[in-house]
Nucleic acid binder design. Structure first.
Lengths: 343, 343
DNA sequence: TTGTAAGCGTTATCAA
DNA sequence: TTGATAACGCTTACAA
């Protein structure tokens, strides 16, 4: 048996109130100046008695505005995403929009599918934490004129509103901190850059910064998320190679920090003693891991909130100039980047 | 200027293909046996040329099925929720549904609002991580006949499909482990029980279990999430009171575990040395915190997946008997519940 | 094999 | 102040 929810429609209300649909519609849309007090009362009564809920689908169809915002998120299990989501969600609540959320699991195909899915649900705008889009998907987007804001990452060859981190500045902040604390050999560890500009930007900034300190060693490492053994080995080798120097690791995001911490654990290398460690993205457990892990905190919630605000502005006015908002990171110093006694 | 997405409709496609809407609709719905090869081709061409996307709103309005599932989640920043969400999301993907996600921030009012919001978007079913509902909200739900599945928690006085943890068994597993490891004074710490049955169930099971061991000390503590100072003090007092015994703390969920770990840090009490610690919910950093924290891992992803499957079953057949699925927790032993050398 | 027309639950236009 | 009535974009009898 199919469940048949007893749908009560505007016509039912109109009949129960002894009036026409138009008046009920007016009542619903707050055009009370066109309704006598008595009629208002009858309509109000009928609505509560029948427990009536206007059908947003029908409304959306008619008015062409669904009050729906699409969200495409690359990986919902990433703490970064969760906090951003929380900010977006709050902004939606404040503006009366509802989120249609899709998780692409870092897969490009899913991203494309979800994009058209959201479009088919007539979302009024979308916020995208991009994995990487192919030409065709981009062209479709261009055509569809759908208001869109990217968070955290841009898409090559696609100009679009975007809200994210000032990666060069953040990277400088992190690198300078390590240099100041007298680390002599730095290893920048990130996930495979692939199509994700954020990763290359941070790496690039790291190299630029290190180029000014030719006396220091700067190395880099790209590591697949599902290969802990390789990570262990690479770190171990780096450490062996430079054990006569003060070494530090710079993790390119929160996921990497977690993996690096695990690897160090297994290698019996103690951050804050044998090795410095600094990670992009603040983590709730950063102070609990060993002597604490120094992190670069992003204002994730604000980024999410700002992203949604930007989508709303764009929905309101498609002719606005393209906007890029870059937030600043904050360094939270903990035991993993300990000071040399002398310095 | 309002952005006016160049909406292309089924009529446009029909015109471009030199046919009627019906044939296009048939094509879209895979009724190809009723279409000549030539017409199929023309329609296919027109669709790609115009970059046409069927309007799901209109479809939903007409057919009465939106392929939309509502999700009400109590707190999206809780790792438990995130993993469950991930499972739900995967199940949606597998079944062709899309998620409308709402975060109630643990606020009862938001819960009620979102409930009717989801209804208004004609979702075909909902999955709810409940905060606590009042009479009126429940009555509305009963009336609306909306297929619904609760996760993790039940709602008092409301029979409904539910997927969650076997809390008594899980609690026994945890308690027995602590007893076996010779902890003599146990403190069960949870958030204020309020309307959340899960919390009381776990506490109840704890007390039942401890009642069988009158030689051991069993205490309990309810702590507001935003009051770290109080938590510190309570733990400190407990420890002072029983410092002649082997003490252990049992954290009622992942959020509490985090807070407890922080409090212990500030108190300079080391889990795995001065104090045992065991937490409900596995945490990605559990192995990294000090000597590691012993946890009770829930199959969160599976819980989410199963919840969505149950909603789908219920959508299909409203007359199914009410189902309660209880999953088992798994104990992951780490350094925080260390063995006594002798035993 | 194809197309016409009615209707899903709203809102907007127009007339009363 | 009110209320028919025609859309919105789609599916589905029913005709042809």
């Amino acid at each position: 048996m199919k469940s048949e929810a007893a749908r009560v429609t505007i016509s039912d209300v109109a009949r129960a109130a002894g009036t026409g649909k138009t008046s009920v519609s007016r009542y619903l849309n707050g055009e009370l100046n066109a309704l006598s007090a008595g009629l208002q009362q009858r309509i109000a009564d009928a609505i509560t008695r029948l427990n009536y809920q206007p059908n947003q689908m029908a409304r959306g169809l008619k008015r062409g505005r669904t009050r729906l915002i699409g969200l495409i998120i690359a990986d919902i299990t990433n703490p970064y995403s969760v906090n951003v989501l929380s900010g977006i969600e709050a902004a939606c609540r404040a503006s009366g929009f509802t989120l249609l959320m899709c998780n692409t699991n870092n897969e490009v195909d899913l991203e494309r599918n979800y994009l058209s899915l959201l479009r088919s649900y007539q979302v009024e705008g979308i916020v995208v934490h991009a994995v990487g889009m192919r030409e065709e998907a981009l062209n479709q987007l261009q055509q569809s004129q759908l208001p869109m804001v990217l968070i955290d990452r841009t898409i090559a060859g696609f100009t679009c509103d975007m809200v994210g981190l000032d990666n060069p500045a953040a990277t400088r902040l992190a690198t300078d901190h390590l240099l100041q604390r007298d680390y002599r050999a730095l290893l920048f560890i990130s996930e495979p850059a692939g199509t994700v500009n954020t990763r290359t930007e941070r790496l690039q900034a790291f190299r630029t910064q290190m180029a000014q300190h030719p006396d220091r060693v700067a190395e880099q490492l790209e590591i697949a998320p599902d290969n802990p053994a390789a990570l262990e080995q690479a770190i171990s080798e780096f450490y062996q190679r430079h054990r006569h120097l003060r070494c530090a690791l710079l993790a390119g995001n929160g996921t990497v920090t977690l993996q690096v911490a695990r690897a160090l654990r297994r290698l019996n290398l103690v951050w804050g003693e044998q090795l410095g460690l600094l990670g992009f993205d603040e983590l709730p457990w950063a102070e609990l891991a060993g002597s604490g892990i120094t992190t670069l905190q992003q204002p994730t919630w604000q980024i999410g909130y700002a992203a949604l605000e930007q989508v709303l502005r764009r929905i309101d006015d498609a002719t606005l100039p393209v906007s890029e908002q870059h937030f600043s990171a904050e360094l939270i110093v903990r035991g993993s980047t300990w000071k040399l006694p002398g310095s």
